[in-house]
Amino acid sequence: MNALPEGTRPRVSTVRLADGVATLVLDAGGLDQVARAALEAEVRAALAGVEGVAEVRVALMGDRAGGPAPTAPRPRPRIVAVGSGKGGVGKSTLSANLAVALARLGHKVGLVDADIYGPSQPRLLGNEGKKPEAHDKVMFPVPSEWGVPVLSMGHLVEPGRAIAWRGPMASGALGQLVEAHWGDIELLLIDLPPGTGDVQLTMVQKHKPVGAVIVSTPQDLALIDATRAMNFFDQAGVPVIGMVENMSGYVCPHCGEASDPFGHGGAEAAAAAAGVPFLGHIPLDLAIRRDSDAGKPPAAGDTPQGRAFAAVARRLADWLAHAPATAPANPG
Results as ranks from 00 to 15, higher is better:
151 L>W: 05
149 P>H: 06
319 W>A: 00
231 N>R: 13
331 P>G: 00
235 Q>S: 14
201 L>F: 03
89 V>W: 00
238 V>N: 10
16 R>W: 11
140 F>A: 15
252 C>L: 10
178 V>G: 07
189 L>G: 11
151 L>R: 05
74 R>C: 07
25 V>R: 04
104 R>M: 05
22 A>L: 03
264 H>P: 08
247 M>K: 11
55 E>V: 14
78 R>L: 02
8 T>W: 14
119 P>M: 05
203 M>V: 02
256 G>A: 02
151 L>A: 04
112 V>R: 01
17 L>D: 09
16 R>H: 13
37 A>E: 15
245 E>Q: 03
287 A>R: 14
301 G>T: 15
309 F>R: 00
264 H>G: 09
92 S>G: 08
319 W>P: 00
276 V>W: 04
267 A>E: 02
212 A>N: 03
20 G>V: 03
190 I>D: 00
330 N>Q: 15
18 A>R: 13
23 T>M: 13
33 Q>I: 10
67 G>V: 01
147 G>K: 07
278 F>Q: 07
245 E>L: 01
143 P>A: 00
44 R>I: 07
297 P>Q: 04
18 A>E: 14
314 R>T: 12
295 G>M: 10
9 R>H: 12
14 T>G: 11
54 A>S: 15
114 A>H: 11
157 V>M: 14
268 E>F: 10
44 R>F: 07
141 P>T: 07
75 P>V: 02
297 P>M: 02
55 E>L: 14
145 E>N: 14
113 D>C: 04
270 A>F: 10
199 V>N: 06
101 A>P: 12
84 S>W: 02
160 G>M: 06
13 S>R: 15
284 L>Q: 12
143 P>V: 00
242 G>C: 11
108 K>W: 13
232 F>N: 11
327 A>M: 07
147 G>W: 10
16 R>E: 15
168 P>E: 01
228 R>W: 09
151 L>G: 03
120 S>W: 03
234 D>Y: 14
303 T>W: 03
158 E>K: 13
